[in-house]
Write a protein that binds this DNA or RNA. Structure first.
Lengths: 189, 189
DNA sequence: GTCTATAATAAGATAGAC
DNA sequence: GTCTATCTTATTATAGAC
């Protein structure tokens, strides 16, 4: 039972870290603040994650597991309409969106521990998006290719998230992405 | 002469702050690091900017002045092709792009001093972009409106910047934006 | 206008008791 | 497994000399 307990603890610490990073960014996150949220001292937390970077790594790994759980092996197996549904879902979870918006931009700063993670992640996501658009090749505007459009589609998702986080009453992520799909000649279900 | 000197100093401090924020984010930026870059002590710097927040405010105001200088009153007076040229220019200045990518995402975190600034700025930029697209109303895909497309166009710009910062060899901001314009039915010059 | 000195606080990390 | 105690370093900010 000790092992299960430990796993639970770790999971709840990661969840708390996820929240605090959304609120304060990685550099603004203190281990004490995360520990506090799960009723531990800073030193108690460090029993599970010896360094702050270890905790960040765990947060990023957890997201990958969550992705896999929901979408199978990478974004490539999703359909465009499933992706639009994911945007709808995200629109109900500002915390999740905020963690990744904040963290991904954070990651371009000097010697940031998540830089490699996001570099690789975007490479994978572009590849997945390319495959996804491949299935709509015939519908795409003449002269455009899935390779060309993939980074743009991802940019729309990320960029709308930022605007939405800054003003949820003015910006509609879901509608925006669906409008973008029509620009691609893809009709939503 | 004392006044001119003072103004120069202030300007060089702001420039240094701009750089350090790009490298480390706002929360990761220390006044000492900025001071060091202009050959002052932390306390010497605080003669010009009494608090860290005052310095951030100056950085943001300077960007607004720069914008005005280059594009007249807001983005509305620019043409779509001038905007595409601006993207070309940005592609030669990763530092500038990085400061705003990092800072804008940073600003969505709790009690961030730049939150109001970016909220208002995006509102203005969306309005400007709407006006800009208005001039191409006839070319836009049937059923789409400038109001609807403006946040998407801005999202493309911001989203491409992030991907470009993470991997400049794989992502082409300029080409990406021009491809997006063709999706809108707008032909580049 | 810029410095030295210093206060006050907070951070990540280590050692060791229980 | 979690705590207290503590070290070390870094931070913003103030006071006052020159």
């Amino acid at each position: 039972m000790t092992r299960a307990r430990g796993a639970d603890r770790r999971a709840s610490i990661v969840r708390a870290a996820f929240e605090v990073i959304a609120e304060r960014g990685y550099r603004g996150t203190s281990l004490a603040a995360v520990a506090d949220r799960v009723g531990l001292t800073q030193q108690g937390l460090m029993h599970y994650f010896p360094t702050k970077e270890d905790l960040l790594t765990a947060v990023l790994e957890t997201r990958d597991e969550w992705d896999l759980l929901h979408f199978g092996h990478a974004e490539s197996s999703m359909t465009v309409n499933q992706l639009a549904d994911l945007v709808d879902y995200n629109a109900t979870r500002p915390g999740i969106v905020q963690t990744y918006t904040v963290l991904s931009a954070d990651s371009v700063t000097e010697d940031h521990p998540a830089r490699g993670y996001f570099h690789d992640r975007y490479e994978r996501v572009r590849a997945g998006m390319t495959q996804m658009l491949e299935r709509h090749r015939d519908e795409l505007p003449p002269g455009t290719t899935p390779e060309q459009l993939a980074p743009i589609a991802i940019a729309v998702l990320d960029g709308l998230q930022l605007q939405w986080l800054l003003d949820r009453s003015e910006v509609d992520m879901s509608a925006g992405f669906r409008t973008f799909l029509t620009l691609l000649g893809i009709k939503p279900d």
